[in-house]
Amino acid sequence: MTAGAGTGRRPERQRGRRRAGLLPGFAALGSGLWFLLFFLAPLAFVWVFSFGRQEGLIDIELAWTLDNYLRALDPLYLDILLRSIWLAGLTAAVSLALGLPVAVGIAFAPARWKPLLLLLVVLPFLTNLLIRTYALIAVLRTKGYVNAVLGWAAEWLGLPFEPLPLLYNDAAVVIGLVYVHMPFMILPLYAALERMDRSLVEAALDLGASRARAFWTVVVPAALPGVFAGTILVFVPALGSYLTPDLLGGADSQMIANVIERQFKRANDWPFGAALSLLLIYAAFGTLALRPALARRWRGPR
């Protein structure tokens, strides 16, 4: 190529680069607008409402008061918030305990089985949450499938049987939340394990470790990034879940989202509902902030 051709082409190339530079800009602007209109703006309204006072049926007076937050600290609501954290934490823990063996199983399965197994994990997502929750009611209720199977088993063994109260209590809520959120635990765990060098396990066995020791000292540490990600991905949405405790929970197993819903609807106290919502958001943000800190700590000294 001659020098002349090179200089002749350069401005064109520069224009092309500028055009290419604008395109992501437009894309960012589009998503930025979307984010602004449908996320930040409503959130800003809620934030403003949380300092307001309900006047009459529909009017909200912007009083810039902290009354709503103070009311949220009332033991009645604080109790529900703490219980929500407890139930969400329990959900994350149970999901981890059940999800880790599943993730290990998929990660170590023959390659041709993996796509099918992963599909099975996400299959429940293809059905509406409401329908899945009603299906759980059919499974858990007094004359549901679980009690029916247990009843047959007891009869066969000649044991007395009293149907287990599986529905409308905290246990039902945790079962429902675990069922709904399990894929969020399994997928990050699987991703972490899939990245692990398989010869690490072989090296552990070769160095004299038992299978159990190899699992705890090699597989689990390799899964840790997935454990953190999965726990947070389960905990945060479980903390704000509304449908599951509403349908599966009893009178006293409501979670914070149920209280918030009631403020916006039946109680018609938007400012207080807004304050509770923001507290929930802060709790979720706090949890998310834990992740990098945890990850740094567990990566060991640099």
């Binding site: 010869s199 090296a203 160095l207 000292t217 540490p221 840790l224």
Partner: peptide, 22 residues
Amino acid sequence: EPPNRRSVNMVFQSYALFPHLS
């Protein structure tokens, strides 16, 4: 016999060092 019962040790092609251990 499983590898952990054999008095031979292996150096892996990828080295297979445990990344989370010093």
